[in-house]
Design a protein around this nucleic acid. Structure first.
Length: 896
RNA sequence: GGGCGAAUAGCUCAGCCGGUUCAGAGCGCCUGCCUUACACGCAGGAUGUCGGGGGUUCGAAUCCCUCUUCGCCCACCA
């Protein structure tokens, strides 16, 4: 039988964590069984990017998933938590490009094949670290099913999707203005080019009118934030009802600095209030201009005057002196050139939103090009219906609005990226003369579908989210109709952060309905974002991040998990202070230690395995026994209810306070005399200690799996060898006992009242003090006879005795039910000395009050006495008077 | 321009489908205790006009309006 000597007095997480995790793996408790017949419960992990190792945000997100998975597994469901990682196309490519950049090499110097090979190397490295991190935090993923969004099977799924959507007419090749990142050299989706408020200038530029008539002006002025794009202008337009420009339509103007001639036209999309009301149309470098150009000049060319890295193009439309200049340098040069030629008007400061690349934060360049797009509207419709019907819901539900808004205003999705790292687009262009057929195929082809001519595969890869959106089913073997897919799709809960609702959540719902005709999950639980004390999100550049492994090493995985769960209601951000890690993780660490020591205490006081509670003679139960069993039963029900409502923070706090405040502070203390043989009933106490502690360990296990699992191995009486596989406590109405709860609450109140009096009157801890309760309320009732014993026991544990008449020198208190408690103090303290001390204290206070009263009287006559000063002095006076009154009561009690 | 969220004890936050956990928790702070499970502990204690103002109600931290201050998301005024 284990004894306390086997457990260290302080919980040392590092001493047990890896061994405990090893036992879980050996027992296979994390592996979902296809054939169990149990109702499945499935969570797919939001696959972390292989770009970098995990941070605290992942710690939070995955802890919540693990809590849910362990909870459902213990409740008897076939729980599958499917792990994996995301190849994170553009992000990962950037990381590796930076590695090469250190040697001054670009990816083009290295070549596609060698570059991709180097990326794989990086991926294997970080993937290993990520999985080690997940294990260190105790996550119960089914590692036998680990996937990667770029593994072979997954690629097959991606190709199948591309081909299917293409056949269904939902994927098409489009020629339009897209967001282009000049640094990453790729196009981006709308979501990847995020708006950011930027302060710039609004430049007023004069376009010379060619051969003006008598009533025509010599020039028209256009306001633009981007003068450098004017060489790509093909027209100027104004609103057809704008009186200021009546009759100008049809005139010709010259683009400044080049003299290229363009017409003036009208279009209703022009905002009359903005700028001069005259808009320049640059179809190749502005999406709106592109649309306008197509309506007013459908056959006009769309000159591209910026290169892929956003320099002025080597083009005849661009003045020779500007060619090759960076767009922002060119802007400055152009402005001074315009100034010199007298064609620059006002320059106003102008705040506007500019899109930036979400991966490298370069200002995105709108650029005309050919890309692959997904037609989204048909996919979005079922996803909207699903939310309306409640088939997919959000926790907290306000995020549903965000989801709906995006789906309602959805636009086509640009899915092609000019990158090397990712799923290569399965499209082949025919190179035969006169054939422009594109072959789209799941398998590699070497001949054109249409003419049999030679083909060349599209160089581009797919948006990384084009693979992520298949995660809930591609990970289960789809498009094969695997047994896993049949059993574990659809899933249940998705746990993620709100910032990827568009990127990922909504798209998964769309893909789920389109390809499997079923939702991928029923609930989307939104966790908050982990921030620093200045409420900034963690980021590498700020250096404010916290490495979960660091935390696990210093405080233990259980402390980390407790901290993030207790600190985060659904959807609220979690603040963590890197500068004060001790304070941040104190509560969790202290609690783990408390639980550990409870285990130590119980083990140290066992005498063989105790009988199961069911086998005990309830007639031998004392009040405290009945109370703790009832309380335990109530807490189990409350915890379960909180879990079902996704109130994980409430659930863990409930268990925390039960274990600490009820079980440790009251039951364990009450039971000590019995355990030590000073009172009878030790065997009953031991049995109940084990039973309640085991139940509490079970309730706590999803949150703090390591310490609970380790103790489970030592505490006798569990049916299951491993807590991770044990059953969640079920309702046991037989143990409910409201009467015991009420009566024990009175006992607690009595003891607390006595303790307070002892503390207030300075009774030395070693001194024994008799207490008396008023006979009218407690003494005469039947119930009190039973309580009397408990009170005596608890009183003894607190150094109290229940004796003596309710007269003489002493303190009293009245409890909530009207019971009067009297503590004779004569024998415990030197009354004369205490009186002198209290009287001295009172005199001091009285002097202070006199002074402040005088000050207030003065202030009354002082004009413009600061109100806050008066307020403060009044408050002081009030507090002191109250303290004075209390002292008076005490002095009277002592008979002085 | 539109929408959402937040403001509660020194700090970080719960509570917020109105009235018995209603002013709370953890950390910090003050007092006394190394009582043989735990000083990562035990006992006791202090601290808040629940952002300002108005309203609804018998009653509001909790509902409505408004203001202030922060934060986030969406958006084709170039």
């Amino acid at each position: 039988m284990p004894t306390t000597t086997q457990l260290a007095p302080q919980f040392d997480p590092s001493a047990i964590e890896s061994a405990v995790y090893g036992r879980w793996l050996d027992a296979g408790v994390f592996t979902a069984d296809r054939d169990s017949g149990r109702e499945p419960y499935v969570i797919v992990i939001p696959p972390p990017n292989v770009t970098a190792v995990l941070h605290m945000g992942h710690g939070l997100n995955n802890t919540i998933q693990d809590v849910l998975i362990r909870f459902e597994r213990m409740r008897g469901r076939e729980a599958l938590w499917l792990p994996g990682t995301d190849h994170a196309g553009i992000a990962t490519q950037n990381v590796v490009e930076r590695i090469f950049a250190k040697d001054g090499r670009s990816r083009h110097d290295v070549g596609r094949e060698a570059f991709v090979e180097r990326v794989w190397h990086h991926v294997h490295q970080t993937e290993g670290t990520i999985i080690a991190q997940l294990k260190a935090m105790g996550f119960s993923c089914d590692w036998t099913r680990t996937r990667f969004t770029l593994d072979d099977g997954y690629s097959a799924a991606v190709r199948h999707v591309f081909v299917t959507l293409h056949q269904d007419g939902l994927i098409y090749r489009g020629h339009r203005v897209i967001h282009w990142c000049p640094r990453c050299h790729t196009s981006l989706s709308d979501e990847e080019a995020a708006f950011e408020d930027t302060s710039g200038h609004l430049y007023h530029i004069r376009y010379q009118v060619v051969d003006p008539g008598e009533t025509d002006p010599a020039f028209v002025t256009v306001a633009t934030t981007r003068p450098e794009t004017m060489f790509g202008d093909i027209a100027l337009v104004y609103h057809p009802e704008d009186d200021r420009f009546t009759g100008r339509s049809g005139l010709t103007v010259e683009i400044p600095l080049t003299g290229v001639r363009i017409p003036i036209g009208t279009h209703t999309a022009v905002e009359r209030e903005f700028g001069t009301g005259m808009l320049k149309i640059t179809p190749a470098h502005d999406a709106n201009d592109f649309d306008i150009a197509n309506t007013i000049l459908p056959n006009a060319p769309h000159p591209v005057i910026l290169t892929e890295d956003a320099r002025m193009a080597d083009d005849e439309r661009v003045p020779a002196s500007l060619r090759g200049l960076d767009r922002f340098d060119a802007r400055k040069r152009i402005v001074s050139m315009l100034e010199a030629s007298g064609q620059l008007g006002r320059v106003d400061p102008h705040a506007h939103a500019v899109r930036y690349c979400y991966r490298c934060h370069t200002a995105v360049e709108p650029r005309l090009s050919d890309q692959w797009f997904v037609k989204m509207q048909p996919l979005a419709a079922p996803a909207l219906v699903a939310h309306h019907r409640g088939d997919v819901r959000f926790v907290p539900d306000r995020w549903g609005k965000v989801y709906e808004q995006w789906l309602t205003e959805i636009r086509d999705w640009n899915i092609s990226r000019q990158l090397w790292w990712g799923h290569r687009i399965p499209a082949w262009y025919c190179e035969a003369a006169g054939c422009d057929h594109i072959t789209v195929s799941e398998r590699d082809v070497d001949a054109c579908d249409a003419c049999g001519g030679p083909v060349r595969q599209d160089e581009d890869v797919l948006d990384t989210w084009f693979s992520s959106w298949l995660w809930p089913f591609a990970t289960l073997g789809w498009p094969e109709r695997t047994a896993d897919l049949a059993r574990f799709y659809p899933g249940h809960t998705l746990v993620t952060a709100p910032d990827i609702i568009f990127f990922w959540v909504a798209r998964m719902v769309m893909a789920g309905y389109y390809f499997l005709d079923e939702r991928p999950f029923d609930t989307v639980y939104m966790n908050g974002i982990v921030r620093d004390p200045q409420h900034r999100a963690f980021s590498k550049s700020l250096g404010n991040g916290i490495d979960p492994l660091e935390v696990v090493d210093a405080y233990g995985a259980d402390a980390l998990r407790y901290t993030v769960v207790a600190g985060a209601a659904a959807g609220t951000d979690v603040i963590m202070d890197r500068g004060d890690m001790d304070a941040t993780f104190a509560a969790g660490r202290h609690f783990a230690n408390k639980v550990w020591n409870l285990g130590r205490f119980i083990l140290g006081n066992l005498d063989g395995a105790p009988a199961p509670v069911g086998a005990l003679d309830t007639a031998q139960f004392e009040l405290a026994d009945r109370w703790i069993l009832a309380r335990c039963q109530r807490i189990a029900a409350e915890t379960t209810a909180a879990m079902e409502r996704f109130r994980l923070n409430d659930a863990v706090r409930t268990v925390y306070h039960f274990l600490w405040d009820d079980f440790a502070d009251w039951y364990v203390e009450q039971v000590k005399p019995r355990l030590y043989g000073e009172a009878s009933g030790g065997d009953v106490a031991r049995a109940i200690l084990c039973h309640v502690f085991r139940t509490a360990l079970t309730l706590l296990h999803p949150f703090m799996p390591f310490v609970t699992e380790e103790l489970w191995a030592h505490i006798p009486g569990g049916d299951e060898p491993m807590l991770a596989g044990a059953a969640w406590p079920t309702d046991n109405p037989a143990l409910a006992d409201e009467e015991a709860e009420t009566r024990f609450a009175r006992v607690r109140e009595l003891i607390s009242a006595v303790r307070t009096m002892r503390a207030e009157y300075g009774v030395p801890p070693a001194a024994t003090v008799p207490i008396v309760t008023h006979p009218a309320t407690l003494d005469t009732t039947e119930a009190f006879n039973a309580e009397q014993r408990t009170i005596e026991r608890l009183a003894k544990a607190s150094g109290l005795d229940l004796l003596g008449p309710m007269t003489g020198v002493g303190a009293h208190a009245v409890l909530g039910d009207g019971t009067a408690v009297f503590v004779p103090l004569g024998g415990a303290i030197d009354v004369t000395q205490e009186c002198a001390r209290l009287a001295g204290e009172r005199t001091r206070l009285e002097h202070q009050i006199e002074r402040v009263a005088a000050k207030l009287a003065n202030l009354q006559f002082t004009e413009r006495a600061p109100a806050d000063v008066v307020e403060r002095e009044r408050a002081k006076e009030h507090t002191w008077r109250e303290q004075c009154a209390t002292l008076g009561d005490k002095l009277r009690a002592l008979g002085c």
